[in-house]
Each structure stands twice: as C-alpha cells, then as structure tokens.
Write a protein that binds this DNA or RNA. Structure first.
Length: 111
DNA sequence: ATTGTGACATACG
DNA sequence: CCGTATGCCACAA
C-alpha cells in the first residue's frame, strides 16, 4: 500500500505526548509538505487511535471539535489529560504547546 | 487535465 | 473584535 501524506500527519500526531498540544501549522511545518489546511483535512480522516484532539489551530481554539462525537468530547479528552479548556480555547496554550520540529529526533518510518 | 473542497494561517481594513 | 481576501496543496470526482 502506498503511504500518503495523510499517514505522515497521523504519525506526527501520534508523537504528541499526553497533556501536550500542537497546531496544524507546526505539523505542516515539520513535514515541510502540504499546508496547515491539509493537516486538518487529513485529521478528519483520522482513525480513533490518532489523538487528533491534541491538534488545534494557532489561537489554541478547538476548531475541529465539530468532527468529534459528540463535539464536547474533544475538550473532554483534553481536560482528562490535564489541559485546561475554556470556551473552546486552551488556557495557558503556550505552556502546553509541543513543537514537532523541536521534539522529534527520529525520522518517521513508513512501513 | 480541471474543479471543488477544506479540523488553517496571515494580512489588511 | 469582526469580516474579507489570498495563499496554501493533497485528494476525490
């Protein structure tokens, strides 16, 4: 099976530690391929194993919550990991921010 | 090949 | 703060 851009997005997303979050832009940046839009689009196709709730937009807003069932689940998952969420925004966003390019030291393998 | 579609980001008024 | 415009580019039809 040919791996696609989507698979890379999933791999990066799976590297996000519990209690941390990152943005669509940083992921796109790390991949140096596609764009932030592609990341969001890819995550829409993400399976349940992908912690897509740890990816938010640049303002720290849960812009993808409508794709969760129910939508409140995204914030719920984040809170359960110690991330404070208020009004669909992450509080102390910078404190929880996790940047792929500064934290992933090994290349992602596509098998 | 062409068109439409985005869970975005940035710039501008 | 809000709305609009533009760039972005993989993917499906």
């Amino acid at each position: 099976m040919n791996q696609t851009y989507f698979d890379w997005v999933y791999e990066v997303t799976k590297q996000i530690p519990k209690g941390k979050v990152t943005t669509y832009g940083f992921i796109a940046d790390y991949l140096a391929l596609g764009s932030a839009r592609m990341v969001g689009w890819a995550l829409r196709h993400a399976n349940q194993k992908t912690p897509a709730h740890r990816v938010v937009n640049r303002k720290g807003e849960l812009s993808g919550r409508h794709h969760f069932r129910p939508p409140e689940r995204m914030a719920q998952l984040l809170r359960s990991e110690g991330v404070e969420v208020k009004d669909d925004k992450i509080l102390y966003f910078e404190k929880h921010l996790w940047i792929p390019s500064e934290n992933i030291h090994e290349d992602i393998d596509l098998s």
